[in-house]
């Protein structure tokens, strides 16, 4: 298989010459492959980023929850203490701690700015709860909190987390669907370009047949040319796409909520599969177009 591929890519210089250079379809194929590869990089980045988001929201946030304590100021510390005592004795709770004033201020800063008069406002206290692998019984904990600390409300994040996780998963699926549609569109464009070239070269096909060329030879001359054009175009498009993704704002700069649309770590290797896949699509599309055209002309 590898030797066949290398032989195909290496080609036969003399055989390549039998098909005349076709400026318009050549440029069309290279441009289409480059544009589609560029779009595929973004669709891939979207899929991978939303995948990370779904994993993060599904797994990491799923292991944490928050207890909000609202009470008159003189009872606030007592109720926080009562909640902590309940949590210590609750099976499934790995760790729990009240957020400091600074941490709460940091959480509110994006909405109210840095100059919030935190001390003068009746802001509820937040307690972060980390579950162990087993997890806790949320209904049981709520019942105990109602008895021990009436101002405490457990928020296990399920209410807002599930729709977000579902949305992220759907976005990932849409990203993958986009990649498939881009691949199909690339195939259609290359089929049209190859068919146009085959029809424009009817005389070439006639001469080649006259001198004893087999259909496989004629098809190969066209297929190799279009495959290499698609490979080159997709290579350029992929590099441009990767450059554009690399130039996107970093996750930290864009805020922690979005994990950043760029690639992370080994995910940068994924776009490198686009040019060879584009070449495979071009190979299949041109081969099909060539076989169909040659059959019609026999």
């Amino acid at each position: 298989m590898l030797s066949k591929t290398l032989h195909f890519l290496g080609g036969d210089a003399q055989a390549d010459r039998v098909v005349p250079p076709t400026g318009f379809t050549a440029r069309l194929t290279v441009f289409a492959a480059a544009a589609m590869a560029f779009l595929t990089v973004f669709a891939l980045a979207l899929s991978l980023a939303t995948g990370r988001l779904a994993d993060r929201w599904g797994a990491e946030l799923g292991k944490s929850s928050t207890i909000r304590v609202s009470a008159p100021e003189e009872q606030l510390d007592a109720q926080v203490l009562a909640v902590m005592e309940v949590l210590v004795t609750t099976p499934g709770v790995k760790d729990a701690r009240p957020l400091s004033d600074e941490e709460q201020a940091a959480l509110l800063e994006p909405w109210f700015g840095p100059d919030l008069p935190f001390d003068t406002l009746p802001i509820p206290r937040l307690i972060e709860v980390i579950e162990d692998a087993e997890g806790y019984d949320a209904d049981g904990l709520r019942a105990r909190l109602a008895g021990e600390a009436p101002g405490a409300v457990l928020d296990d994040h399920a209410r807002w987390r599930e729709p977000l996780v579902n949305a992220a998963r759907r976005l990932r699926a849409l990203g993958l669907l986009s990649i498939l549609l881009i691949a199909a569109t690339t195939g259609v464009m290359i089929t049209l370009a190859a068919s146009a070239a085959l029809n424009a070269n009817a005389q070439v096909i006639r001469v080649l047949r006259l001198v004893g060329a087999r259909d496989a030879y004629i098809a190969r001359a066209f297929v190799r040319r279009y495959t290499l054009r698609a490979l080159a175009g997709a290579g350029v498009g992929t590099l441009l796409g990767m450059g554009a993704v690399a130039a996107l704002p970093a996750a930290d700069a864009a805020g922690g909520f979005l994990t950043g649309l760029g690639f992370r770590g080994l995910h940068w290797l994924w776009p490198l599969t686009i040019p060879p896949l584009a070449a495979v699509v071009a190979f299949a599309a041109t081969r099909n177009a060539a076989i169909t055209t040659l059959k019609e002309r026999s």
Partner: peptide, 22 residues
């Protein structure tokens, strides 16, 4: 053939050698 039928983008020598090439 009367109308010969060549590949115009190739040289005469290449056209003559075409049956060997293919």
């Amino acid at each position: 053939h009367q109308d010969c039928q060549f590949l115009d983008h190739m040289s005469l020598a290449e056209n003559v050698a075409l049956p060997l090439t293919v």
